Simulated scan of single mutants.
Amino acid sequence: MLTLYYHPLAAFCWKPLVALYEAGTPFTAHMVDLSKPEDAAALESLWPMRLFPVLKDGETVLPESSIIVEYLDLHRPGPRRMVPADPHAALQVRLWDRFFDMHVQAAMQEIVWDALRPEPRRDPQTVAEQKAKLDRAYATADRHLAGRDWVAGDFSMADCAAMPALFYAGAIHPFDAHPALSAYFARLMDRPSVSRVIDGAQPWFQYFPFHDRIPARFLT
Rank of each mutant, 00 (worst) to 15 (best):
181 L>E: 11
113 W>E: 14
74 L>I: 08
76 R>Y: 13
183 A>K: 00
197 V>C: 12
85 A>M: 00
147 G>I: 09
185 F>S: 14
140 T>K: 14
142 D>K: 04
57 D>W: 01
26 P>I: 03
101 D>A: 13
176 D>L: 02
216 A>P: 05
3 T>M: 06
102 M>T: 15
97 D>Y: 06
103 H>W: 01
191 R>T: 13
113 W>F: 15
177 A>V: 05
111 I>E: 13
68 I>Q: 06
74 L>F: 02
76 R>W: 05
171 A>R: 03
48 P>S: 10
220 T>K: 15
19 A>P: 10
69 V>I: 10
9 L>V: 11
14 W>C: 07
91 L>N: 11
149 D>Q: 14
213 R>Y: 09
95 L>C: 09
179 P>M: 03
101 D>H: 05
17 L>E: 09
165 A>E: 04
168 Y>A: 07
129 E>P: 10
186 A>H: 09
66 S>L: 05
120 P>T: 10
7 H>K: 00
181 L>A: 06
203 P>W: 11
21 Y>Q: 07
198 I>N: 10
114 D>W: 00
150 W>L: 04
153 G>I: 05
117 R>E: 13
135 D>W: 08
35 S>E: 11
216 A>R: 08
109 Q>D: 11
100 F>Q: 10
69 V>R: 07
28 T>W: 07
79 P>F: 01
30 H>L: 02
107 A>Q: 13
57 D>A: 12
202 Q>D: 13
31 M>G: 01
182 S>V: 08
155 F>L: 07
75 H>S: 14
38 E>S: 07
171 A>W: 00
215 P>Y: 05
52 F>L: 11
199 D>F: 09
169 A>G: 10
150 W>V: 00
109 Q>F: 08
120 P>K: 03
63 P>T: 00
110 E>N: 15
95 L>Q: 12
213 R>V: 10
95 L>K: 14
161 A>Q: 12
111 I>H: 03
137 A>T: 08
208 F>V: 03
203 P>T: 08
171 A>G: 08
119 E>Y: 01
42 A>H: 12
92 Q>V: 07
17 L>I: 00
170 G>E: 08
186 A>Y: 04
38 E>N: 13
121 R>S: 15
89 A>H: 05
140 T>R: 15
53 P>L: 03
171 A>H: 07
173 H>Y: 01
76 R>N: 06
83 V>K: 03
202 Q>K: 15
127 V>Q: 02
98 R>S: 08
147 G>N: 13
132 A>K: 12
8 P>R: 00
129 E>C: 10
172 I>D: 05
30 H>V: 00
41 A>H: 13
107 A>S: 14
95 L>M: 14
90 A>S: 05
57 D>I: 02
201 A>S: 12
198 I>T: 03
7 H>Q: 02
101 D>P: 02
217 R>Q: 11
88 H>R: 11
148 R>F: 04
213 R>I: 09
50 R>I: 08
141 A>I: 00
20 L>V: 07
175 F>Y: 15
161 A>N: 14
14 W>R: 00
39 D>Y: 09
206 Q>R: 13
206 Q>D: 01
52 F>W: 01
197 V>Q: 07
75 H>V: 15
183 A>P: 03
114 D>F: 02
112 V>L: 04
137 A>W: 04
133 K>H: 04
130 Q>D: 10
170 G>K: 00
178 H>E: 03
97 D>T: 15
186 A>G: 01
3 T>N: 06
182 S>C: 08
95 L>E: 11
146 A>P: 07
183 A>R: 02
69 V>F: 12
198 I>P: 14
134 L>D: 12
